[in-house]
Simulated scan of single mutants.
Amino acid sequence: MNYSLPALRAFDAAAMQGSFRAAAATLSVTPTAISHHIRGLEDQLGVKLFERAGRDVVLTEDGRRLAESTAKAFGILDDAVQTLRRTSRKAVRLAAGPIFTARWLMPRLSDFWEAHSDIELEVVPSYQPGAIDQSGVDIVIRWERTASMPKDAIKLLELNPVAIASEEFMARFGAVESPKDLLGLPLLHQRDHWGWLDWFDAMGVRVPMPLRGPLFQDANALIRGATEGQGAIVGWLPLIDQDLREGRVVRLFDEQITPTHGYFVETGSGNRARRETENVMAWLQGAA
């Protein structure tokens, strides 16, 4: 038996929205058309798919089983179409955190355009890019501890940690004479406590108790907190070079610490073979 694809699409939209009217708006048709499709599908299947609940509709048990299948099926179709669209447009989707995008990638975009004017780069904001996910991302830029990355990871950029704060912070709490003094002052953290823990370890300071202080996923918010005197942070050279030059923050010490964190690049196994993805990967490594 052949089932109408528009009817299945109408059912899928109604199942997700919980409303024929909302499904109609999603598909740019009338609520009557949605109702007609659902009624025809129920007649074909010989089961009831929805129960009325005021102005909304609720899936029956049979409806729930069908909805699980249509969601998967249309998801597969949508992914395939997006992949073909990106391939035909020579588009490459890159996921990266906001500070990397704003402070490293953005100043180099004109260079990328000159080298690869035929590639459309789509930058996807991601605070924790992690592994390749199901959203069609071709390349992921990861910010991680160097010690946590596998040996075969592709390192893009090493980051040198330095303790920084604002002049306002220094005026409020007084000069910081030694690294140990920071244990008693407000500290702000990026994602987890490892930035400060690695910094204290490199400076020879034993941390006697768990570190406290708010965690921020967005490093731009963290830097703003530091510039406004809310706390001291571990800043990462070279990403904070401009902040230091313009005096928004100052280094608390003249420390020279071996890089503890960095940006690493990864691609999905299926994406690596695409020429456009390989070209972007090569450009990123060359620019770094």
Score class of each variant (00 low, 15 high):
His189Gly: 11
Gln190His: 15
Gln190Met: 13
Arg191Pro: 04
Arg191Tyr: 09
Arg191Phe: 07
Asp192Leu: 12
Asp192Ser: 15
His193Pro: 00
His193Cys: 00
Trp194Ala: 12
Trp194Asp: 05
Trp194Glu: 07
Trp194Tyr: 13
Trp194Thr: 15
Gly195Arg: 06
Gly195Ala: 14
Gly195His: 14
Trp196Ile: 07
Trp196Leu: 12
Trp196Tyr: 03
Leu197Thr: 12
Leu197Met: 13
Leu197Asp: 06
Leu197Ser: 13
Asp198Ile: 03
Asp198Glu: 15
Trp199Gly: 02
Phe200Met: 07
Asp201Pro: 00
Asp201Ser: 14
Asp201Tyr: 13
Ala202Met: 13
Met203Gly: 00
Gly204Glu: 08
Arg206Ser: 13
Arg206Tyr: 07
Arg206Ala: 09
Val207Asn: 03
Pro208Gln: 01
Pro208Ala: 07
Pro208Met: 05
Met209Phe: 14
Met209Ala: 15
Met209Ile: 02
Pro210Phe: 09
Pro210Arg: 09
Leu211Tyr: 08
Leu211Phe: 10
Arg212Asp: 02
Gly213Ser: 09
Gly213Tyr: 04
Gly213His: 04
Pro214Ile: 06
Pro214Tyr: 07
Pro214Gln: 10
Pro214Asn: 08
Pro214Asp: 11
Leu215Phe: 06
Phe216Arg: 03
Gln217Lys: 15
Gln217Phe: 14
Gln217Leu: 15
Asp218Gln: 02
Asp218Tyr: 07
Ala219Arg: 03
Asn220Thr: 11
Asn220Asp: 12
Ala221Gly: 00
Ala221Thr: 09
Leu222Pro: 09
Leu222Asp: 10
Ile223Thr: 11
Ile223Phe: 12
Arg224His: 11
Arg224Asp: 14
Arg224Ala: 11
Gly225Ser: 10
Ala226Ile: 01
Ala226Met: 08
Ala226Lys: 04
Thr227Asn: 03
Thr227Ala: 15
Glu228Pro: 00
Gly229Lys: 02
Gly231Lys: 01
Ala232Val: 08
Ala232Gln: 08
Ala232Asn: 05
Ile233Gln: 06
Ile233Ser: 03
Val234Thr: 09
Val234Tyr: 10
Val234Arg: 02
Val234Leu: 12
Gly235Lys: 10
Trp236Pro: 00
Trp236Ile: 00
Trp236His: 11
Leu237Met: 13
Pro238Arg: 03
Leu239Ser: 01
Leu239Ala: 04
Leu239Tyr: 01
Ile240Ser: 05
Ile240Met: 12
Asp241Leu: 06
Asp241Trp: 00
Gln242Phe: 05
Gln242Cys: 06
Asp243His: 13
